[in-house]
Design a protein around this nucleic acid. Sequence first.
DNA 1: GTAGGGTTAG
Length: 654
Amino acid sequence: MMKIPNDAVAKPFFQIFKGTFFIAPASLLFSRTPFSFSELSSRIHLSQRFLPQFHSNSALNHEPQFDRPRSIFEKITKLDDALKLFDEMTQRQPLPSVVKFTQLLQAVTMMKHYSCSIHLFKQMAAISVPVNEYTTATVIKCYCQLYHTSEGFAIVAYGLKRGVLPDVWTFGTLLNGLILEDRILEVERLFKKLVKEELCEPNVVMYSTMIKGLCKFGNNDTAIALLRLMNEKGCKPTVVTYNTIIDSLSKDQMIDDALKLFKEMVFHKGILPSVVTYNSLIRGLCNIGRWDDASKMFKEMEDKKISPNVITFSILVDAFCKEGKVEDAEVLMNIMVERGKDPDVVTYSSLIDGYCLRGEMKKAREVFDSMRIRGLVPNVVTYSSLLNGYCKELKIDEALYLFREITEKGMKPDVVAYSTMLQGLFRVGRCEAARKLFNEMRAHNQIPNACTYRIILEGLCNNHLMEEAISMFSLMGDNKLNLDIVVYNILMDGACKSGKLDIARDLFNDLSVKGLQHDVRSYTVMICGFCREGLVREATELFLQMDERGCPPNSATYNVFLQGLLKNKQHDTIEMLLQEMGGHGFSLDASTLALLLVNPIARSFDARLLKLIGKLVPKEGADAPCSTWLVASEYNINVGKVNRSKLFDDYCEA
DNA sequence: GTAGGGTTAG
């Protein structure tokens, strides 16, 4: 990962908080006992004493006011109460109106108990409660949220039989359902049909839904075109419409386009940005390392009295953790608490993940325990981070124990959890256990994704089970999982390493047939493979082809090729390659350097060449852009934690 | 007199 000086990441943010907020000691977050209300209020009191400006400055004063319930049923917040009420209603003579029943259904839907809502609807049908547009739209929403949009269409038919015509709400919900299920073609077909046959006049929500769909399917440009079109049709976009596109652009790292749209929204359309707008932009800026701009955004939202919410903080905590600044993330979480925004499961998960990524499992476990003490229930994502951490440390039994705990706690391991566990098992060579787990995964209807297959194929290859990898690969068939350059690279690498160069070569040639583009790694793997078998001429040909085919070699390719040449005692082109590397700003990795320096030819290097090599060695603390992947262990060279540049200096002195 | 669909965090 790119190394960023400590200050660059967190400092801009903490400057905002500096002097404004009382920073709670870490013990507040990780104390063994949960907060009591009196504790919380005494802490607020303390911060008031320390910081008179806390109140005048704080966005705490600008909390959104809760709307009065629009329906008496909105007061119902517990599922049990709703079910009891439903039973009562069904007993009443005469039956309450369809409106009352629908409101109850909506209350249950609001609590996200979609299956339950559907169940209630079926009971309503059984006792012949009539339905109207509201009832069907609500039930359709439930089916859509459960990824059963086709059932939603069946409800439309059910309504039609009873004289209920689908309206713009119903169609909007159905479009949303199709989008959730990635049914792109049907989304397009339905939308066009609605417009063409004038089945309903699209409104701002429907346009926004379509825009969401286009963004989801990677079509930001069309989404923006639709934004323009709805304007032409006299349908005014809202902040939600803009947020959808701004978020998508930010996610696709097109942050400057997102900012352009943001300005258009605020200055030309006069639409006030919301906390969601800022959250998307801040996350986008953090993701590409524009920390100063992100902190400016954060300040801007405070100036505009838009209160950062749990998600805002969560984004920052996550960004800090991803940069390895877990301690800063913890300080930020304390500030959250100070500002009355309690970190939620997602926030804690980010922190846990941060510690796991650094291999600090003890700390990760502490945070995990403290969040549970706080009454927060870890979810599958939280568990997956821990699984990943333990697996990386090769502590497979701890990982397995946690993995079983997921089920014990009444949750279902998802694809990520299974895949992480599989990766761990393969890493320690427990292939049989991995096989069993894979079967279990399929038995539990968790569909392996491209990542799962990569892990399995890589695991089989690394454990010298090349035949199984190949048969697994052919079992995958010609679908989009198979049409993945990464999978090919894994297999070619595996084949090369197990001395099956023919298989690797076939796969390499198969790529063009399948319409896949060779990437730098594909070439590098093959160059490594050819060199391993002493086929320097073929390796050289491939190396030269890379530029011609518009896929120029990178640092890793040069390192692998250099190692191959050295191993095969082909010293003629080494100097030229080193000079090319210098020209490209590439670096020598530790093992290539070591191999170069232990080679007798090094004795013949003149001062000029040694100086060049010195430049190619990354200095300590600097970015090391060359990856060390593909470094052949067979060379048995281990420079360990020796300072790379020191290694070189020592050599020059000797 | 009564209610419904679209946006952000791992």
